[in-house]
């Protein structure tokens, strides 16, 4: 244990007078656990936010805010609780973004239109951002593009609660109880929202999807 404590980064040195090596090592492990958890959910979380907000930057902001809230407020909770908690926070952030967007829309209606590219001025060049994503060959890609576009559009058209239930159950793989925690409703409501979402998507996307 002492050996582990000796290898801890300097950032943990300040409270050493107050905490023992065991607690420092636990803190280090917690950080690693949080890192792994956030890395495991970040892309799906972004997709959930993107479908709900239909705006990449707003979706990224919502995910970042949700990550911050989780680690500053709920890091001490057992890691099994993190996923439903995270999605509950994310849902609140998405609602905040939607409200903010409504207000922004009203304000912007009274302001002059900004010049193209004005928003990107302060963004630093990022080599990782230039990296190509893993993509299939052109023909398959085209079909997949269509499928993804149609599905995202259909999910985006669902009422908010059905959308949430569908994405958390089907896409993120939460069970009914976890989805109920994330949505802040009963398990019965989750089942109802999910079933209606499936019906609506099936009706909209047709037999091609079965």
């Amino acid at each position: 244990m002492t050996a582990i404590a000796a290898t801890l980064p300097a950032v943990y040195s300040t409270p050493a007078a107050l905490r023992g090596p065991r607690e420092l090592a636990a803190s280090h492990l917690k950080s690693r656990e949080l890192d792994q958890f956030l890395a495991s959910i970040e892309r799906k979380a972004f997709k959930v936010a993107q479908i709900a907000l239909r705006h990449d930057d707003d979706a990224l902001d919502a995910v970042q805010d949700a990550m911050l809230s989780l680690v500053t407020t709920y890091a001490a909770r057992p890691s099994e609780e993190w996923k439903p908690l995270f999605y509950r926070i994310l849902e609140n952030k998405i609602r905040d973004q939607q409200r903010r967007r409504t207000v922004r829309g009203r304000v912007m209606a009274w302001l002059p239109v900004p010049r193209a590219g004005e928003d990107d001025e302060d963004e630093a060049w990022d080599p990782l951002a230039q990296a190509a994503s893993a993509e299939p060959p052109p023909v398959a890609r085209l079909e997949l593009d269509e499928a993804i576009g149609a599905l995202e559009q259909a999910i985006g058209a669902l009422p908010a609660r059905q959308q949430q239930a569908f994405l958390l159950r089907n896409f993120e793989g939460l069970d009914v109880a976890e989805t109920a925690t994330a949505m802040g409703c009963s398990e019965g409501s989750v089942k109802t929202h999910y079933f209606r979402a499936l019906q609506a998507l099936r009706a909209r996307l047709g037999d091609f999807w079965t």
Binding site: D35, L38, A39, E42, R43, F46, K47, D56, L60, V63, Q64, M67, D126, L128, A129, Q130, A131, A132, S133, A134, E135, L144, I148
Partner: peptide
């Protein structure tokens, strides 16, 4: 299929 920019920004957020 998320693009590099999005993956990078998610990493930064984390």
């Amino acid at each position: 299929r998320l693009d590099g920019r999005t993956r990078s920004r998610l990493n930064q957020a984390r």
